[in-house]
């Protein structure tokens, strides 16, 4: 069976790793060395300064995902790997979008900012810089709407995520 032809799906992996130099290189190197793709990657320290959380979005079939997770768990610096894809989760990405703001467009841009509940974080006579937080669909939607004004630059944080707490459960 050619395992690489099974249907692809977007997976969000949450990985707890030692907060040490070189660990991100090990994780990223594993993906490149084994020919796995990375959709996005974000990493930051957790409340435990010895541990970092890496959130990686990967496209791949179930079989590829199983292999990716096993390979990740094999890394000595990796403590935990969770696939959040099929469980309730909060998933967010932050985007900073610098959009052209010509005179006739400025009001419309602000209306869109309002509708999407995002914020203008910088302004000049020629452009706005807008901060959007949300899931990837929301960011894509606003980018689509901004496209006609002209997008000058964009910076995205990559997805970060946490599983949702179970509701109604006693602590």
């Amino acid at each position: 069976m050619d395992t690489r032809e099974a249907p692809e799906k977007r997976h969000t992996l949450s990985i707890l790793v030692d907060n040490e130099p070189g660990v991100l290189a090990r994780v990223a190197g594993l993906f490149s060395g084994r020919n796995f793709n990375i959709g996005s990657l974000s990493v930051a320290e957790t409340t435990d300064p010895l541990v970092s959380r890496i959130t990686i979005v990967v496209p791949g079939s179930e079989i590829i995902l199983e292999q990716i997770m096993k390979q990740l768990r094999k890394l000595i610096n990796v403590h935990k790997v969770i696939d959040l894809t099929d469980q309730p989760r909060v998933e967010r990405e932050l985007a900073l979008i610098k959009v052209k703001g010509k005179n006739g467009d400025r009001a419309e841009i602000l209306r869109i900012v309002d509708i999407f509940r995002c914020q203008v974080v910088d302004v000049s006579p020629h452009d706005y810089t807008v901060e959007v937080t949300g899931d990837q669909d929301k960011i894509e939607a606003i980018l689509e709407l901004f496209a006609r004004f002209g997008i000058i630059e964009i910076a995205k944080s990559g997805v970060t995520a946490l599983p949702r707490s179970k509701k109604g459960e006693k602590k």
Partner: peptide, 11 residues
């Protein structure tokens, strides 16, 4: 002993 060897090349 290595879980990643299992289901890697063959189901």
């Amino acid at each position: 002993i290595d879980p990643s060897s299992i289901q890697k090349n063959i189901q």
